[in-house]
Design a protein around this nucleic acid. Structure first.
Length: 422
DNA sequence: TCTGGGGTCCTAGGACCC
DNA sequence: TCTGGGGTCCTAGGACCC
């Protein structure tokens, strides 16, 4: 049995924990650069604010409704995510952290009422972290997703918990679920399935698995079987090693000069290096890409990227910054207003293993370099603190994002720790 | 004025191996 | 009449997730 624990309106709920006055008020959280709506409180959903739409297009329609707007604060959400997942380990040692706000638990070993267990989970997470969650319990991951959806809608009648085994009319529940609302099926596949006469989760659950495989490959067949109660997607207890690491950002303002882009790309490469070392990996290929705005109809559209392959894999931010700069000079075209750039690390290998080379011209990362990286990472460890950086990162910081409504980090920043008066 | 970031998996097809 | 069988590696493209 799987339990899917999903935080309700996660980013909005995080913002509310230290500002209880926001309880009951509509909250939206915007994407990086204060662009699109990426999270909404229940009150904001009730106002009809859509997900994923640019805020500047949405805002006029809800002016005067008292909507509280936040820039996204990933240091804060990451900390709350860590606390929620830590709390969940109380209830099962076998868990898969599926995303920043979702976790699958193996509750197969639980003796006793699973609905009561779900309620204990929701109660404890709320009390220990301040975050409200919903719990769906079922014999497959896909059905746990369905059950979680019912729990969120309060259709199970058990508060924020739905145990699939106790749903009074499971066939009717599946028949009421549109095919594109199933986990793993989005607009494209939804359209194709509808054309083939499959419009609901019930129809998919009852379809012939071999027919599903011919139509949509092994992925679709698994979804069908999972909906029918046959578990095909196991719990991933050990997170698999990353295959690529990306750092990319839209700029706070359009940039035209090579110098401004150099500053941005250096900062992205250095940030990617930090992530690389945290994962104990090395990279052998570095891609850098730039693009102009896809929305500026009056301007020429330009998007380009280039990949540089190293002779030996590296963990050295200096090498990564250097590579990214070299790539940038190859794809930079003057006279354009760039909107976004990014650095992608690929061909990742574990830091401990070294493939020898017979005719090597480059040297591997030296012990001195690695000590330097460790030292720099330690100095910069505090979130959003940058004590030491590459000079290239300082040639320009004009790329930095708009974040006009970012909250402070009460749980992780000494300067903003809440004070309790007795 | 303004439009996110970071990932994964699967398949088909080409090239190549013995 | 009948034209092998079994495999790997790589890449591009499509689709999906939160």
């Amino acid at each position: 049995m799987f339990a899917l624990v999903d935080c309700n309106n996660f980013y909005a709920s995080c913002e509310r924990v230290f500002q209880p006055a926001l309880e009951g008020r509509p909250i939206v959280v915007l994407s990086n650069n204060d662009g699109c709506v990426v999270a909404r409180s229940a009150e904001a959903k009730a106002l009809g604010i859509p997900m994923g739409k640019p805020w500047f297009k949405v805002a006029p329609a809800v002016r005067g409704a008292g909507v509280v707007v936040f820039s996204s604060n990933y240091a804060l959400y990451g900390e709350f995510s860590r606390r929620v997942m830590q709390t969940l380990t109380q209830f099962s040692p076998r868990l898969e952290v599926y995303s920043i706000d979702e976790c699958f638990l193996d509750v197969g070993g639980h003796r006793g009422d699973l609905t009561a267990l779900g309620q204990a989970i929701a109660r404890t997470v709320r009390r220990w972290t301040g975050i409200p969650v919903s719990v769906g319990i079922a014999p497959t991951k896909t059905l746990a997703k369905v059950a979680n959806r019912l729990a969120k809608k309060g259709q199970a009648g058990q508060g924020p918990v739905c145990h699939w085994g106790e749903v009074a009319a499971p066939r009717e529940a599946l028949a009421a679920l549109a095919v594109e609302d199933i986990w793993g099926i989005a607009a494209r596949w939804g359209g194709r399935l509808r054309q083939a006469g499959v419009a609901t989760a019930l129809a998919l659950a009852e379809a012939d698995p071999s027919w599903l495989r011919r139509l949509g490959g092994v992925v679709l067949e698994r979804i069908g079987r999972e909906l029918a109660g046959c578990s095909c997607l196991p719990l991933e207890l050990v997170p698999p090693a990353k295959k690529q690491i990306m750092v990319s950002r839209s700029f706070g303002e359009r940039l035209s000069s090579l110098t401004d882009l150099q500053g941005a790309v250096a900062a992205f490469a250095a940030r990617a290096g930090v992530k690389l070392r945290r994962e104990r990996l090395r990279a052998q290929a570095v891609t850098v890409f730039v693009q102009t705005s896809p929305f500026a109809d009056a301007e020429p559209w330009y998007a380009n990227g280039v990949t540089l392959v190293l002779e030996r894999p590296t963990q050295d931010s200096g090498r990564l910054v250097q590579c990214a700069q070299e790539g940038l000079t190859r794809i930079f075209r003057p006279g354009l207003r760039y909107q976004k750039a990014g650095v992608l690390l690929m061909d990742l290998t574990p830091a401990g293993a070294e493939q020898g080379l017979l005719f090597a011209s480059q040297t591997p990362d030296s012990p001195a370099t690695m000590r330097l990286m460790t030292c720099v990472d330690t100095l910069n460890r505090e979130p959003a603190r940058r004590v030491v950086c590459h000079a290239r990162e300082l040639v320009s910081t004009r790329w930095q994002m708009r974040q006009q409504r970012k909250s402070v980090n009460r749980p992780t920043d000494w300067a903003h720790l809440p004070v309790v008066h007795a």
